[in-house]
């Protein structure tokens, strides 16, 4: 095993082109049970990207207004950085990536490249319709997080490519949003089901709403055609509560119908499916801060 820890992105891209290179950042997932896995990883060359300055920045794109987060930015930095106050749902997700010690090491890029179905930060990123940048010797390309994630531990990353940044579109920054996670033991557990919603209400009507659900499918998923049914919904005081309840409940039910969760030691598939319904309703209700729905959902 060889070890590389470049300080420059060009060096890292060059090293990544070597097929023996395994890329790591914080290593909080890859190095668990290292002793047991060394037979598998022992022959690989490892490269850490955590000290590359370009991957450590959080900034606003001057022209588009997008929030750009470097791949090596840690969960702790996201939870505490001033610019990330515009993406509170992502901050809520960052705060439950393991305990504090893990949040100090785990990176947003690693959370995506790892492609765990239960990844926390990936869920609001899918709801935001965030985009990743992938760089290799051949150049740079971008794709939405929702297509980058292909399946459990599977991504669209080609050999030799590095995930360099996550770009959150300006249109969701500062908008009402929420991330919710169901787990048994708090931060050191992984989620049973999670959901994120981002929405905007203008003049008493929903002008924008996007939802995503985690840990209920091979990858976090969203249903844009279902989210569209929230468009134009009247939610101001005096709106017909039954109508709002009905639409939100119908959106949640369709997410639950689309979920194909697994049964494992943490929960049964049937329970997870039922909880998709509950979390989606709560996430939308919480995001619209529509008290009547929130109370009903709490029961």
């Amino acid at each position: 095993m060889a070890w590389y820890q470049p300080n420059r992105l060009e060096e890292a891209v060059k090293q990544a082109a070597d097929a023996r290179t395994v890329v790591v950042c914080g290593g909080t997932d890859l190095f668990v049970n290292w002793a047991r896995r060394q037979g598998t990883y022992g022959e690989a060359d490892w490269m850490s990207v955590e000290r590359i300055p370009e991957l450590q920045t959080i900034s606003l794109d001057d022209t588009t207004g997008d929030l750009v987060i470097g791949a090596a930015v840690t969960a702790h930095q996201i939870a505490s950085h001033g610019l990330c106050a515009a993406v509170p749902a992502l901050q809520q997700a960052a705060r439950v990536v393991g305990g504090w010690q893990i949040q100090n090491r785990a990176s947003i890029g690693g959370n995506l490249v790892n492609a765990s179905p239960a990844a926390d930060m990936a869920v609001p990123l899918v709801a935001y319709d965030a985009v990743v940048a992938l760089q290799s010797l051949g150049g740079r390309r971008r794709m939405p997080v929702r297509t980058f994630l292909r399946g459990p531990r599977q991504t669209a990353l080609e050999p030799g490519e590095l995930l360099t940044e996550v770009r959150i579109p300006a249109r969701v920054l500062g908008r009402p949003q929420q991330f919710l996670r169901l787990d048994q033991r708090g931060g050191t557990d992984i989620s049973l089901v999670s959901a994120a919603a981002v929405a905007q209400v203008d003049e008493g009507r929903v002008s924008f709403a996007q939802v995503a659900v985690g840990a209920a499918n091979p990858v976090p998923f969203s249903l844009p055609e279902v989210d569209a049914s929230l468009q134009g919904l009247a939610v101001a005081d005096g709106a017909a509560l039954r109508d709002v309840d009905g639409v939100v409940a119908s959106v949640a039910r369709r997410y639950a119908e689309a979920a194909q969760p697994i049964s494992d030691v943490r929960a049964s598939a049937a329970y997870r499916t039922a909880m998709v319904d509950v979390l989606v309703r709560r996430a939308i209700a919480g995001t619209l801060t529509f008290r009547a729905i929130a109370q009903e959902v709490e029961e």
């Binding site: 070890w3 820890q5 290593g27 909080t28 668990v32 049970n33 850490s48 393991g98 010690q101 050191t188």
Partner: peptide
């Protein structure tokens, strides 16, 4: 040895980390 219990917690540059999930070279 699986990054759950936190008995191995140390401070690296002042921040708490689990030293069973970090390489010495890091």
């Amino acid at each position: 040895d699986t990054s759950q219990c936190g008995a191995c917690t140390v401070l690296v540059d002042g921040k708490a980390v689990k030293s069973c999930t970090m390489l010495a070279v890091q």
